[in-house]
Each structure stands twice: as C-alpha cells, then as structure tokens.
Amino acid sequence: MGKNDPMQSLGSNERPAGRGMSMRMGSAGMAVMLVVFLVAVVFAANQNDVIGWLVVIISLGWLLIFGFVVFSLRSAARKAAARLQGHGAFGAPGQSPAGPPAADRARDLKLDHSFKIVQVQVGVVRDYLGKDEGMVERALETIEITSHNARSMMKGSSEGPVEGTVVE
C-alpha cells in the first residue's frame, strides 16, 4: 500500500487522496461567493440605489444556495464514508463491495433448490422403479445434472453447468 492509497488512509485520521481536493474546492467556492456578496454590499451602500441592493439580494440568494449545496454534499459524503467503513465494504482484494453475505445467500438459495430437485427425483425413482425404466433413467439423469451443478457452486469449479432435460 502506498502513501496515496485511499484504502490505507481510511483507518487513520488522514484524509483519502481524492477527498482533500473536493473539500478545498468547496471552501474556495464558498470564499468566492462570500467575496462577491461583500463586494455587492459595499457597492450598494456606496451607490445607495435600488439596482445595487437587488444585486446584493441576488448574490445573497446564490451564497445561501451554494452554502446549502456544499454543506449537504459534505455531510452526505461523511455519512456514506462512515456507512461504507462501518459495514466493511473495503474488504480484502477481490472481495465485492457488497461483501460476501449477499453472494452467500444467493448461492445457498440455489443449493437449496438443487437439493429439493434431487429429493423430488428420488421420489420419482421410487415410484417408477420396475414400472417405467425410461422415467427412472430420466430421473437419474436429472439427479446427476443437479448434483454436478450443485457441486460446482460449492467448489467454485470453472466447469460450466451440465446441460440436459430436467424431469420434475
């Protein structure tokens, strides 16, 4: 991890590399808007005419809008960073930002479905054993395909799913 690595600085009190620039830009923009407002006030006070005071009101409105946007974005960014850091979103390399629980849940649901298919096909084999060899053969093929696919989900195998006809 290098000095400018944002992952390294999240755990410490340092700012991440990209965040400091946006904070400085927001502060610089706020300073510019404040200077524009103060200049408008000074000119309006010196000239003492209606147009000068309208410019003051308009610049005050822009200052308030800009301030609202800057402070809302800063607070939203802080909340998002705290949420991401609190949920461990920046985990090990190769780990998705959503983390493993969502992937594990999906895999578990697929495995559960595979086991249900196997249970149904075992019932088919019991019902048709000695009566209809074609039905038993198709049920055994379905069990084989489903078991292969389930094992590949568990092992993370690079082999693709087995193709065939599923009998339910």
Rank of each mutant, 00 (worst) to 15 (best):
A76P: 00
T142Q: 04
V55H: 13
K116L: 04
E137N: 15
S22W: 10
V124P: 03
K155G: 00
G29P: 04
N149K: 12
L54A: 13
L84I: 13
F115H: 03
K3V: 00
G160I: 03
R24P: 01
N48G: 07
E163Y: 08
V122E: 15
P6C: 02
S157T: 09
L109V: 06
G91A: 08
Q85C: 03
V36C: 10
S96K: 05
F66Q: 05
D112T: 13
I65C: 02
H87G: 08
I117Q: 06
L140D: 01
L38T: 10
E137T: 12
A98Q: 11
S27D: 14
A28C: 09
R78K: 08
R24M: 13
S75L: 01
F68W: 15
L63N: 04
A92K: 14
A139Q: 11
K155E: 01
R105E: 05
L129W: 08
R15F: 13
A139W: 13
S12A: 03
I57C: 10
L111K: 10
Q47K: 14
V70M: 05
V167Y: 15
K155W: 01
G86Y: 01
D5F: 04
R105F: 08
K131W: 00
A81V: 00
N46P: 01
Q47M: 10
S152G: 02
R105Y: 02
A81D: 14
V125A: 13
R105P: 00
N13W: 10
I57W: 09
L140F: 03
I57P: 03
P6K: 00
E159G: 09
I117K: 03
A76M: 13
A76E: 10
G156C: 01
G123Q: 04
L129C: 11
R74F: 11
G91S: 14
E144G: 04
G99D: 09
D49W: 06
A150G: 07
G86P: 02
P161L: 07
V35S: 14
N13T: 13
